[in-house]
């Protein structure tokens, strides 16, 4: 039987991605109704299994479940037995044994969702694994771009910052290039992974060059602790070289979108006047997140449609 896991966008087809974006769009009216709930996943239970703290991704998934009438169960490092030395597989198998219908996992190890998908019968949805992928983030980014009229075919999307450690950059690169966009990576050479172009993106050293004529300027969060790891010399220098300010944004296409996966380091990778400016769609990304996750959950649990009628 076909499984509707969502492990990453690398192995998700363009038509599947479009299906998710279309479905998310169709679901948008649910959020504006008096009764923000459809019975679609009534009686299904979804476990959010978070091994890394993340308020927004987790809340977004849980809201998406609630809008679709699925029940949710939260497991996190602080409340589960993971700290007692239980393996990931045992934790997940225990949850499955409770009758869970799908698992949403966030884990610091790249590949943890793939690993779980081999262990579990139920579908596994990746909510971010290590430095590997964060498919629902990329899908909500793409949803937001589409809502703002970005036509992926031929669009230039500049992704700037710590590419090496970014699952958001990887998932966006896979997803966007599948739909025909031109993705440009830019960041300090110490934060660009080897053979980054093999992810389908063009690697550009100069941030001005990356932003020039872009339809979307996507800033990544800089993990400030990377500085102590010696990966960049100072925040001051980083801001100068790679931060998004009004001058740099002016190099992009007129009305180019400014995006950020959050949480932002204001004054580091992005200046407040740009983050809060008219081109910023950062808050809309959050709204799109719930819709996209509803679509992904529906894909995992709603199943195919067998029309009983004519």
């Amino acid at each position: 039987m076909h499984r509707w896991d969502l492990l990453g966008l690398e192995n998700t087809s363009a038509s599947d991605i479009v299906w998710i974006l279309d479905t998310a769009k169709s679901m948008s009216d649910i959020m504006t109704r008096d009764i923000k709930k459809v019975p679609t996943l009534r009686g299904k239970s979804v476990c959010t299994l978070f091994f890394e703290p993340s308020t927004r991704t987790r809340s977004s998934f849980e809201l998406a479940c609630k809008y679709l009438s699925a029940d949710t169960l939260s497991f996190s490092t602080t409340t589960s037995s993971v700290r007692k030395g239980e393996t990931l597989a045992d934790t997940a198998l225990n949850i499955q044994a409770m009758g869970i219908d799908a698992v949403v996992i966030r884990h610091q190890s790249s590949g943890a969702p793939h690993y779980l998908a081999q262990k579990l019968k139920c579908p596994v949805i990746n909510a971010g694994d290590g430095m590997h992928e964060h498919p629902t983030q990329a899908l909500l980014d793409m949803y937001t771009m589409r809502e703002h009229g970005v036509n992926f075919e031929g669009a230039k999307v500049a992704i700037i910052g710590d590419i090496a450690h970014s699952r958001v950059a990887r998932s966006n690169a896979w997803g966007l290039t599948k739909l025909g966009a031109h993705v440009v990576f830019c960041g300090p050479p110490t934060l660009i992974p080897p053979d980054a172009d093999k992810l389908g993106a063009e690697v550009v050293a100069d941030a001005d060059e990356a932003v020039r004529d872009a339809d979307v300027v996507y800033m990544l969060r800089l993990q400030l602790e990377r500085q102590s790891g010696g990966l960049f010399p100072s925040v001051r220098e980083y801001r100068e070289l790679y931060g998004l300010n009004r001058r740099r944004l002016a190099l992009a296409k007129r009305g180019a979108l400014v995006m950020h996966p959050g949480p932002m380091n204001r004054g580091v990778e992005i200046e407040s006047d740009v983050a809060d400016g008219p081109q910023s769609v950062i808050l809309e990304q959050v709204t799109g997140g719930v819709l996209v996750r509803m679509a992904v959950l529906f894909r995992a649990l709603g199943g195919g449609n067998e029309w009983a009628g004519s």
Binding site: S110, M131, H132, R170, P193, P194, D195, L199
Partner: peptide, 13 residues
């Protein structure tokens, strides 16, 4: 190994 596969899999190489 540090290279295109580690980049794809998001593993430190």
């Amino acid at each position: 190994h540090f290279g295109r596969v580690s980049t794809r899999l998001g593993l430190r190489g």
